[in-house]
Design a protein around this nucleic acid. Structure first.
Length: 371
DNA sequence: CAATATGATTTGGG
DNA sequence: CCCAAATCATATTG
């Protein structure tokens, strides 16, 4: 487009008479400004154009150059361009639409959100962190998966960027090439700068549609990656033995009201090196599954109750059994671990009334147990 | 391989 | 948000 002045300028200064490129017989009619001379001039030109193919190559070349430098050329060129412009416009009509930007915007936004496009490292780690938060996991083996995920994401990002760059470069190359070609051809064909501009726009549209495909497939790849690595359901890991023990211990020692408070959940989470929401999930699952089939869990319940009892006796030699609501006051010499275990079992199975706990929740839990 | 166990998610109510 | 319940999808077991 900035070539326009140059293009025009090259013809603007073309003189009439005495131009070194003009063959002798062409100058004959150019001296006078009368109408006859002009007609003669045009006829001459037409004649030359019509017969140019009959001439030898060198001669034709020289003739072409001469015609190109003729004073009529710019005017003729402009007229032809104008005609062409009108024809093209009438043919293409209202084909200038740009609606499919929504799709592109969506893809761009997603790529940006996933850290594929946008800033190099910061975006990536931010996305990974967001993903971590989304998955709700921060466990020990989770970080390994994250690094794996991040590596894969980085790979995708790299491919995306190389491809994008490649496209960009190809687009630029192609554009320059076409522009040069058109400019070159504008010496022999009526190609206006405006048309070149339009052609460039068409090329860019084409390439951006190719880019969109790249973005689309990148998005797909990221989605697949996400579902593979971040959908925890697909990568479900059982908690380790110790964590399960701790959770079960709490559950069965609070069987009459197995609803840990927020603080208790936090502590359990810390002890089991899982998240609080995992603790919540665990208790939710446990409650519903326990209730559904108490018989199935009886053995487990007894085991944990006994273990808790043993621990209690081992830790405190005497007295501090506030946890046991049914400690007999005449326990004197019977206070051995077996007895306490039995007490725990009885208390858990029979669900005795216990004091200071959330009465409503406890009632609900107990009521639902009896269904 | 089928059956069962299990952690996570979805749905629906409060 | 909490929860119960149903459901999903994987892990483990027999």
């Amino acid at each position: 487009m900035d070539e326009q002045p140059r293009l025009m300028h090259s013809h603007a200064g073309v003189g009439m008479a005495g131009h070194p490129g003009l063959p002798q017989h062409m100058q004959e009619g150019t001296g006078g400004a009368d109408g006859d001379g002009r007609k003669q001039d045009i006829g001459d030109i037409l004649q030359q154009i019509m017969t140019i193919t009959d001439q030898s190559l060198d001669e034709a070349q020289a003739r072409k150059h001469a015609l190109n430098c003729h004073r009529m050329k710019p005017a003729l060129f402009n007229v032809l361009c104008e005609i062409k412009e009108k024809t093209v416009l009438s043919i293409r009509g209202a084909q200038e639409e740009e609606p499919p930007d929504a799709q592109l915007m969506r893809l761009d936004n997603m790529l940006l959100a996933e850290g594929v496009s946008g800033p190099e490292k910061g975006g990536g780690s931010a996305a990974a962190a967001a993903a971590a938060a989304a998955s709700g996991g921060a466990g020990a083996d989770n970080s390994a998966e994250h690094s794996d995920y991040r590596a894969k994401l980085a790979q995708i990002r790299q491919i995306y960027h190389t491809e994008l760059e490649k496209y960009e470069q190809a687009c630029n190359e192609f554009t320059t090439h076409v522009m040069n070609l058109l400019r070159e051809q504008s010496r022999t064909r009526p190609i206006s700068p405006k048309e070149i501009e339009r052609m460039v726009a068409i090329i860019h549209r084409k390439f951006s549609s190719i880019q969109m495909q790249l973005k689309q497939s990148t998005c797909e790849a990221v989605m697949i990656l996400r579902s593979r690595f971040l959908d925890a359901r697909r990568k479900r890991r059982n908690f380790n033995k110790q964590a399960t023990e701790i959770l079960n211990e709490y559950f069965y020692s609070h069987l009459s009201n197995p609803y840990p408070s927020e603080e208790a959940k936090e502590e359990l989470a810390k002890k089991c090196s899982i998240t609080v929401s995992q603790v919540s999930n665990w208790f939710g699952n446990k409650r519903i599954r326990y209730k559904k089939n108490i018989g199935k869990f009886q053995e487990e319940a007894n085991m944990y109750a006994a273990r808790t009892a043993v621990n209690a006796t081992n830790v405190s030699s005497h007295g501090s059994q506030a946890n046991s609501p049914s400690t007999p006051n005449s326990a004197g010499g019977l206070c051995n671990s077996t007895y306490i275990a039995l007490c725990y079992m009885a208390s858990n199975v029979l669900l005795p009334t216990m004091g200071h706990v959330c009465q409503i929740q406890k009632t609900l839990w107990q009521k639902s147990l009896h269904n």
